[in-house]
């Protein structure tokens, strides 16, 4: 019996080897981007730089910080993310709390009303027409209001409230004459910091990273979020060059030069805030995924 299959030690070694291999594959592109952002673009494009930085230069970052579009985009993204997250919490938390209370009648209908939106939606065009009719085009509302809260988050937050807010405490306060507003503010919210953190983080990340709402709802360049600016720098200009269809010839040479200098630096500048913050908040994110998996 003992000799059947691999011994524990061999198994562990092989397993560790495989995991290491996978981790390296996942991490390599990230390291490459970081190294490329501070290397001489010539060394990067000829393949001289493949792991560690070569001919270190900060020219890329300098260009990024000189680029007015990137600054504006950054500012806009921060603003959209903060505002959007606040509204998200403002809509999500009271609703999820109310749905967690036993004394709320008609819960079933309300839940169906919300859950049905997961199953079916009008689609891109009818939604666009509504946003347009409401006069939200080219305003911050077009970015923060559509998708401000999903049925899924409401279910998740509701499950959290059901499990963590002691019913006795709420009822006792009610008998003492506290209103639901008061209870929500003074008792429920302070007990719910983990779920608030989780929900805020998930929503903030998705707002930070989204480009499509801005693409269809905004036409004013001054309002573009960072991701749309990145799309121009990293994809539209690059692909344009590749296809040979870039319009203005005189700026082409300049574009190529700037683009190759800037592209890795701009990835770092736009992504680093999340990648730096995330390991410290990892437990919140993991928690969020897990609460989300609780079956209703």
């Amino acid at each position: 019996m003992k000799n059947r299959g691999l011994s524990d030690k061999t198994f562990d070694r092989i397993n560790k080897l495989f995991v290491t291999f996978i981790v390296l594959i996942v991490v390599y592109p990230l390291i490459f981007v970081i190294s490329a952002s501070i290397s001489d673009p010539g060394a990067v494009s000829t393949g001289k730089m493949w792991l560690w930085p070569v001919d270190i230069t900060l020219e890329g970052f300098k260009r990024v910080f000189q680029n007015q579009d990137i600054w504006t985009g950054y500012r806009n993204t921060i603003f959209y993310t903060l505002l959007g997250t606040l509204i998200h919490l403002f809509i999500l938390l009271p609703c999820a709390y109310a749905l967690s209370r036993k004394e709320l009648k008609g819960k079933k209908i309300i839940l169906w009303f919300i859950l049905f939106t997961m199953l079916f939606n009008g689609g891109m065009i009818p939604t666009y027409l509504v946003v347009k009719t409401l006069g939200m085009l080219d305003t911050v509302w077009a970015i923060v209001i559509p998708n401000v809260v999903g049925a899924w988050s409401i279910l998740v937050a509701r499950a959290f409230f059901q499990q963590t807010i002691p019913n006795d405490l709420v009822e006792a306060s009610k008998i003492d004459g506290a209103s639901d507003f008061h209870i929500f503010r003074k008792i429920v919210l302070p007990l719910s910091l983990p779920i608030i953190a989780v929900m805020a983080l998930f929503h903030a990340v998705s707002l930070w990273n989204q480009y499509f709402s801005a693409l269809i709802y905004l036409s004013d360049r001054d309002m573009y979020p960072l991701q749309l600016i990145l799309r121009e720098i990293l994809i539209v200009n690059q692909m344009g060059l590749e296809e040979g269809s870039a319009g203005v010839m005189e700026s082409l040479v300049e574009q190529v030069k700037t683009a190759s200098l800037v592209k890795y630096a701009v990835i770092i500048v736009s992504t680093l805030p999340l990648l730096i913050v995330y390991p410290f908040l990892q437990r919140f994110f993991v928690k969020g995924v897990l609460i989300g998996s609780v079956k209703e």
Binding site: F90, I91, L92, P94, C95, Y97, A98, L99, R101, E103, L104, I110, F113, I114, T117, F120, N121, G122, G123, P126, T127, L129, V130, L134, I145, P146, V148, V149, I154, S179, D180, F181, F184
Partner: peptide, 27 residues
């Protein structure tokens, strides 16, 4: 007794109605 709980629902229900149900009608 619980009218405030129903008020809590209002922002979310308004949102779902406008951004999800009106487009369903618009389809």
């Amino acid at each position: 007794l619980n009218w405030q709980l129903y008020v809590f629902l209002l922002p979310a229900l308004t949102y779902f109605f406008i951004i999800h149900y009106i487009p369903m009608y618009g389809v």
